[in-house]
Design a binder for these strands. Sequence first.
DNA 1: TTCATGGCGTGACTC
DNA 2: TTTCGCACGCCATGAA
Length: 646
Amino acid sequence: MGIKGIYKEIGPGKRISLTKLAVQKLQDSDRPLRIAIDISIWQFQAQAARGGTNPAIRTLFYRLLRILSLAIQPIFVFDGPNKPTFKRNKRSGRGDGVATAMAKRLIRLFGFQAHDAPGEAEAECALLQQNGIVDAVLSEDVDTIMFGCTQTLRNWSSEGTKGSKTPTHISMYDSRDLSQGASGLDREGMVLVALMSGGDYLPEGIPGAGVKVACEAARAGFGKSLCQLKRSDTSELASWKERLVYELRNNESGFFRTRHKALTIPDDFPNMEILRYYTHPVVSPVTTLDRLRQQTWDRPIDIQGLREFARETFDWSYRIGAIKFIRVLAPCLLVRKLVQRNTAESNAPKDGNAIENEESELVKSITSRRAHFSTDATPELRLSFIPTSIVGYDFQEEPDEVIDFGRDGLALNSDDEIEDLVEEVGDADPAAKSRAKKLFSPTDADLSWVPEIIARIGIPSMVADWEEAQRAKTIARSKPKASKQKAKTGGTASSSLDKFVRVTKNNVSQTTATEKATSSPTRLEPPRVRARTPLDAIPSSSQTSRPLLSSGLSSQKSQPLKPSKPPTTKPSRSKRNPPGPPAADANVNPWTIASSQGSPRVTKHKSSSTKAPEPILISSSPPSSPPKGVRSSKKAVVDPAKASGR
DNA sequence: TTCATGGCGTGACTC
DNA sequence: TTTCGCACGCCATGAA
Ligand SMILES: [Mg+2]
């Protein structure tokens, strides 16, 4: 339901290289960037791909490779069956069921997480981000902000007018910056904009009121005050509406550009069901969050499984297919292996030679350094590596496609997409290989640009040696007579821990220059301290007298944790609930609304367990991190609530 | 006149 | 047997 014209209001976001974002997180937090990805961002884009077999899923494959090479830890979120009732014409599943199953399989072969949302993926992603399970959400639009996401990424695509369409950049939206910015839109404000301007399937919007008028109303505080209304207080709601309409008509307080005498406000505006859709979307319960929190982000890549997937799905068959597979996978897998050397190393101290031996198994040499625009000048090193030794896959096992039984490297050079250059096929001259860069042999060295910090993690001593050599070179150039005897000051580290610390320090001092140069004011918030949602702990019985939305701080203070008190609304919930109009029930029983909203299908009992039944609370301002204990007690509170929904 | 809304058509991708 | 998004540019329309 992207709000039409919303980007004219909130701006284009910060366009930033995904490499830079990932590297910053690696530096600042000593761990990879974690993002939740709404899988639907590719549901249409991928259809545009042409050529070969299954180009759509192949597009996903290449994106997954890219994620791998960015050292990002993703969790892919799929839409679930519990769509809100007012979106009922849509249905996910059947049509792309096969594609969905394939996508999940591929994602898991990469060692990435595939996660099913109970309802809308966008809302689930926002929940994961709010709870610190991920740092940011990659989505189609900025709707996630209305679900409470504070770091939203969208439009992962190429940047600049240069020829390459390689997707390098994303647009980043920080909810805190947004509320401070010119639009002044926070979560509540955006929800009001959605409610007022409506949309194709948001009924009871105000016809003729678009994003401009709605934003003016939001800046005047009507979003916040609407969300702070006590539930089931119809007179307060009527008063809110009266004030809004009065200001629209007369513009007495000057909130609006002009008066709006001609607007016809529907009788049932605002639609509380839609409001609740944003404030209390159908998302996973805390138990699921805990499970996700405990899951490891470092699952191994199934190389053999990926090879078979590519053979069957993309028709990358025979030895030629295997070589193509190795060629695209190796540079990405190299990054993974470099980063893993940080954590995977045993604590046993190793001598310098052992370290250097391990390093040279991964990387043969470093050839150059750059600060390229495609990565926002994030420093990178060009690494030379042997594809087969990175992938560890024996392509020789695979039969040749044609009758050519030759098993020297020559036949391998005929890759299917280099026909343009195949004039040289049959030319056995090795020099021809270097002339035509596209001639690829998986056993020969290949080159790849890797962020310098990642190289420092995986091959620290090789980087140190290379830097020393570079330094010597420049010195030699400026003062040819100077001796290169300057000993390696750093030398090889005595332990892996020391090594990493040293490397990190070096890298910080080294990269601050470039950071300042590019002057990026944007950075991710520290995620760990960010366990939010203190409000889930609210006893259900307090709902009817509680604000629909209020500030996180005050409500947290005022919420007594009463795990022992079961909800008293069970009777009304237990009668078979038709998905019919909940508006009538809304003032009577919030639980009814919650459940009806959650399940378009009456037969789905699951909805009651997946719907977080607690009322309330949007806190658009950054929350104070709750103490660790809150989380566990919250669990205790929610469980009975969940049981009551049965 | 100026401004905002809403309807319509179109593109996205990799090799 | 049901279905599906979003953003952008262009233009007509109507309100103030
Ligand atoms: Mg959306």
